[in-house]
């Protein structure tokens, strides 16, 4: 089975974010980066399927040069090779344009299965997987916890709300978006890290993908990302900072005498 895993590199989860002066994004230069959480689970699911059924796992990522670091982590965990859509020269935050770029790269590979994470921890649209499925003409399902091969396709367990699940069967090729926590994640081994150095990271340009610059231009999108801002707080928390002992005493007093919760 040939599996493509889409991976996004995002700022680490507890990053302190500073908004740029033009209110369009955050300052990226001081941030540390990591593999998006649910994409990590997608990669884990792909590696497990390969180990059970044979085949190849190809990692696909889009971003500037820095994403190579995350790609290398994937290669060290057992991914065979990687595709990198290098967008040093263009940045788009439109999920439909991003999916168009990813779809162009995926089409060249004709995989049996495409896996994405459920949603990115930065923009949080949660749209890339289902849009990709439409662009690639593949059946899909999302919020997937378990995957097994079945007659002529795959059977997956997907999550519904409130502790309910559903089993769904899909023919291959198909696309699945994977939920965080669906597996125990592996660590790269020393051997894996050594082997990763010999693995290929193929860089893809717009021309390689057969796309023109105006096709990936956010300003042609019918969706406008106007500005970003720190949300106004609807509820004003009383904040305690400082010496832990003093804070704890104050808080305990508030809980007992003001909130009266014990």
């Amino acid at each position: 089975m040939k599996i493509i895993v889409c991976m996004k590199q995002v700022p680490v989860q507890d990053s302190l974010l500073k908004i740029t002066d033009d209110n369009t994004w955050v300052h990226e230069d001081e941030l540390n980066w990591e593999i998006n959480e649910s994409d990590n689970y997608a990669m884990e699911a792909a590696l497990r399927l390969k180990e059970e059924h044979g085949g190849e796992v190809v990692l696909l990522s889009m971003g500037p040069d820095r994403v190579k670091e995350s790609i290398k982590q994937g290669l060290a965990k057992g991914v065979e090779r990687a595709l990198h859509i290098n967008n040093e020269d263009f940045t788009t935050r439109d999920p439909f344009i991003n999916a168009k770029l990813l779809a162009a790269a995926i089409k060249q590979e004709s995989p049996d299965l495409v896996l994405t994470g459920l949603q990115a921890d930065d923009t949080g649209f949660g749209q890339t997987g289902p849009i990709l499925a439409e662009y690639l003409g593949l059946p899909h399902t999302s919020i997937v916890m378990e995957i097994e091969k079945s007659n002529g396709g795959i059977k997956v367990k997907r999550e519904l709300e409130g502790g309910w699940f559903q089993s769904v069967e899909l023919p291959l090729p198909a696309l699945l978006s994977i939920q965080s926590g669906s597996n125990q994640l592996r660590y790269a081994t020393i051997k894996g890290i050594m082997m990763a150095k010999k693995k290929e990271i193929k860089s893809l340009t717009l021309a390689d993908l057969g796309l023109a610059e105006d096709e990936v231009d956010d300003s042609n999108s019918s969706l406008n990302f106007n500005r970003i801002f720190i949300p106004e707080k609807t509820k004003k928390a009383e904040i305690f900072e400082g010496d832990p002992k003093e804070i704890a005493a104050k808080l305990a007093d508030k809980l007992k005498n003001e909130a009266k919760v014990f």
Partner: peptide, 17 residues
């Protein structure tokens, strides 16, 4: 208005067309 960065920041969106 939707949240980005897991609720730390809000973003405004409009449609054209």
């Amino acid at each position: 208005v939707r949240q980005i960065f897991q609720g730390k920041i809000d973003a405004d969106f409009t449609f054209s067309g």
